[in-house]
Amino acid sequence: MLPKERNKSTLMKWCKLLLASKTGSLGIGIVLLVALTALFAPALAPHDAREVNLAAASIPPAWIDGGQSEHFLGTDRLGRDLLSRVIYGSQISLLVGISSVLVAGLIGIPIGLISGYYGGWIDSIFMRIVDANIAIPVILIALFILGFLNPSLFMFILVVGIATWYTYARVVRSEVLSLKEREYVKAAKSIGVKDYMIFLRHLLPNVTSSIIVISTLSVATTIMVESSLSFLGLGPSAITWGALLSDGREYLATSWWIATFPGIAITITVLGIILLGDWLRDVLDPQSQASTRS
């Protein structure tokens, strides 16, 4: 089979599996919707997200106000259009979620490969560091670091990535412990193949499916961490879902929409990513498939 035909066949197989799963289809539909919203935010936002209009402060959503308002989701306490702010907030949430996961993977995957392959004192040192990270909540680590540093977007991504790398290290290490005992790995070592080539050719390709699942689910976790820190005033921007939620918490009794719609956006996005991650786990993990069938 030619490479193009093989790729087309694989793509068709994945499409069929996705369409056969209601949760997978719903998850990827939500993720694509949020991603497209973030990508085309300038075109989709009906107003300037930062424009202050005190004369239009705390206007209820248009569909509650009898259609007389031009603000579909209403306005906040400074008269800023809430729909536009929610749309722009998706950019920060996805950017932080994806970028932090990449940082965590770049740190955790090599550590997991080295720790599982070499074992001994190297494994002991890395795993004790992992245990120390697990003992301290992610949000507490981020609060401590960001409290002393300027919570810029770059620093925020770096801190959250550093605080969550251990998940990759643990999973990759556990799989490498099993893979290094396989005959093809032992054969490669016996003929003098360099360790880094064994990592690239034999170990890393065999843990890729687990890395994909972890990365997908970690994006949801990171978005929750970003929203929590933004809610506490340590977010990377004033226009994030967590910051919008924080702005509206004092006005729930009179202007409930200010906090409600950012909260709904967070919930739907995280739910979509989790559904997609669960589907990927079922498809890529043979043990999960076996347990599901039984």
Rank of each mutant, 00 (worst) to 15 (best):
L2K: 14
P3N: 15
R6C: 09
K16G: 14
A20V: 07
T23I: 10
L33P: 08
V34R: 08
L36I: 12
T37R: 11
T37I: 06
A38H: 06
A38C: 01
A38Q: 04
A45L: 09
R50I: 15
A56T: 10
I59P: 08
I64Q: 10
G66R: 07
G66E: 02
H71F: 09
F72K: 15
R77Q: 15
R80N: 07
L82F: 10
V86D: 08
I87K: 03
L94N: 01
L94H: 01
S99V: 05
L106G: 15
L113G: 14
I114V: 02
I114P: 07
G116L: 00
Y117P: 04
D123T: 04
M127S: 07
D131F: 01
D131M: 04
N133R: 12
L140K: 02
I141T: 12
A142I: 00
P151Q: 03
F154Q: 13
V159D: 04
I162E: 11
T164D: 04
W165I: 05
W165F: 06
S174G: 09
S174H: 15
E181H: 09
S190T: 14
I198Y: 06
I198W: 05
T208E: 12
I211D: 01
V213I: 03
T216R: 02
T216I: 00
T216D: 01
I223N: 06
I223E: 03
V225I: 03
S228R: 04
L234F: 02
G235T: 01
L244Q: 08
W256G: 03
W256S: 04
W256L: 05
W257V: 00
I258Q: 07
T260D: 12
F261Q: 10
L280I: 01
S288Y: 13
